[in-house]
Structure formats: structure tokens, C-alpha cells
Computed example of a mutant assay.
Amino acid sequence: MKKRKIELAVISDVHLGTYGCHAHELIAYLNSIQPKKLILNGDIIDIWQFKKRYFPAAHLKVLRKIIGMASKGTEVYYITGNHDEMLRKFSDTSMGNFKISNKLVLNLDGKKAWIFHGDVFDVSIQNAKWLAKLGGYGYDLLILINSFINWGLVRMGREKYSLSKKIKNSVKQAVKYINDFERTAADLAIENDYDYVICGHIHQPKKERYENKKGSCVYLNSGDWVENLTALEYSFKRWKVYHYNHDRLSPFFADEDLKEMDMNELIASITDKEVEIENVTEEYENQKLESEKSLNDQSLSQD
């Protein structure tokens, strides 16, 4: 199936290494698109809750898929978040098409986009990291319980239910926190003359224009791949929030190009060493086809 060609895709809060991560769905989504740039806006690998006993093959395939996209020409920007903050020591590292940074500014058709994870606005992370980590474990446990509940609901032919969404929407303090987060990001973007501000962190996909006395900007949030299964896409000078659950084609994009991938070859390909291998392989395949055609022609002439 043909992949959708887009200028830019933004995903965040994948939380690889946790029970709530929807790795299979993410692989299907990444297989369905062909972006010029892929922004990984934080919390892709959940180092806070990393467990040696739990890192399924599907989670590893997500990493392999991303590296494979970089090897094929997609510019991949890994912006660090709080759950993968250990990678911040590698900020400004560049390996071919793969780059690590703490924030990113892009020029999109004459407009400036300010991209960062968003944990800088989280007071609990800045002042009480242990409390934030404890909350992370509690959230992961809630998602695990929710998955069992949804399994039962699906078996009974009923729709899935999100406990965490219900809690967030019901608790006034959680709603206020999300609103304050969005307003703070938008106000800072306007103050610094950015047209777009793009965050993750709060697991709330959104696209909305904010205004104040100094001007206006568009606030965007890529959501997550734990509950919402969402991404941001930019193409033809427009942003949209992509919802995996609304896309009927994505499930058809299986692990089409991950069957025989070798991790060492993929890592080498990021630094453009793979180009020579691909050229040699392509030349070999062409020669093989020509030889087979020649043999077939000879057999036909003999007949």
C-alpha cells in the first residue's frame, strides 16, 4: 500500500518499556507515512520505569523502525523529555539524519515553530522529582488495570473505557493544570514571536489558537501512544491532529520492512554508511535479473 507523504510528523509520550505502550499500533502508523521530518517530542523510552524483564519485541521494533526511517532519508529529531532525561547529556549530538536535542525551532513556510516536551512547566518534576516518579508508577498501574477492564469490555462487545481520562476530566485540579500548561506555553510563544508552540507531556492532543494583548499563536500537543494514540502532522501549510483510532487504513500496514532488519546495519546506516551497501545490493539485484532474463531468452530460443 502507498504511504502518505507528509512534511512533518510529531509523536511523543510513547513510553516504550511500560505496559501501557501501544507499540504495534505505532509501528502500523509509522509504516503508513513517509515524512520528510519526524519529531520525537520526549518520553519515547520510559527510562524512569525501565524494567529488564519487560521490553517486548514490539517495543524494540519501534526503535528499529525509527532508525530505519532515518537510514532512508527522513530527518529524525529526538527531543528529550522527563522520562528519558538521561539522554539530555547527549543533547546536540548528531549522527547523520538522527539528532538529539532538548528543544527545536523550525521554519515552516515562513512561520516559526517552537518545539519542546513541556516538562519544564511541571512544578512537581522541578521541585519533587520523587513525587513525579511515584505518580508515574501509579499511572502505569492504572493503565495496566484499565487494559484488563477493556479486554473484558471488548469480549462483551462493548466500547473501551479510559479510567485516566475520566479521572482527569473529573478532577478540577487536573483540568486546571492542563489549562494552565497550555496557556503558559502559548503566552511564552507569543512573547518570543513564535507562530506555533508544540508540546507533549500532558497526554492531551490538541490544536488551538491562543491570543493575548501581545498577539496570537497556535498551540499544538501531540498527545500520546498510551491512551489517545495520536500524532501531529504538518503538510500543505496546515497542521492536523492524527487519531489512529479514526484511521481505518493504518491496521493494514504491518511490519512490512522489519522482517529481516539487522540492528548493526541500521545503526551504521544512520551515519550514511548504508548508502554504499544499498547501491551494491541494488546493482547486484539488477545484474541478477539481467542474467535470469538472458537465460530465459536462451531457453525460449532453443525451444
Rank of each mutant, 00 (worst) to 15 (best):
N102E: 13
E211S: 15
E182R: 09
A113Y: 04
K72N: 11
K160M: 07
A23M: 00
G20C: 03
W225G: 05
L26S: 07
T184K: 12
G223L: 01
I6L: 05
V218A: 02
E290D: 14
M95E: 10
D92I: 09
H246I: 01
K259C: 15
L163G: 02
D46F: 03
L300I: 13
I115T: 02
M261S: 15
S101Y: 07
R155T: 08
N31M: 09
L249E: 13
E274Q: 11
K36V: 04
F148P: 01
L144N: 08
L60T: 13
F55H: 03
G135V: 01
G157K: 10
F55T: 07
N97T: 06
I11W: 03
G73F: 02
P35L: 00
K2L: 11
V226F: 03
Y194H: 09
G152L: 11
F236S: 10
T93M: 12
Q204P: 04
V280Q: 13
F116D: 04
L40P: 03
N279T: 09
H246S: 14
S250V: 14
L30P: 07
L188W: 08
R209Y: 11
W130K: 10
F252L: 11
D247C: 08
I67L: 14
C199N: 10
E7Q: 06
V62I: 13
S235L: 08
I149W: 06
S235E: 12
Y210V: 05
K237A: 12
S32R: 09
L249S: 11
I66C: 07
A58I: 13
D187T: 00
Y161K: 11
G73D: 04
D297W: 15
L300G: 09
P35Y: 01
H15N: 05
D262M: 15
E85L: 13
W151Y: 11
T281D: 13
F148G: 07
F148V: 11
K237R: 12
Y219R: 02
L153N: 03
S162A: 02
L40C: 01
Q287A: 12
L16K: 06
F90G: 02
W114R: 10
K129Q: 12
V275L: 09
E276F: 08
L8Q: 04
E159M: 01
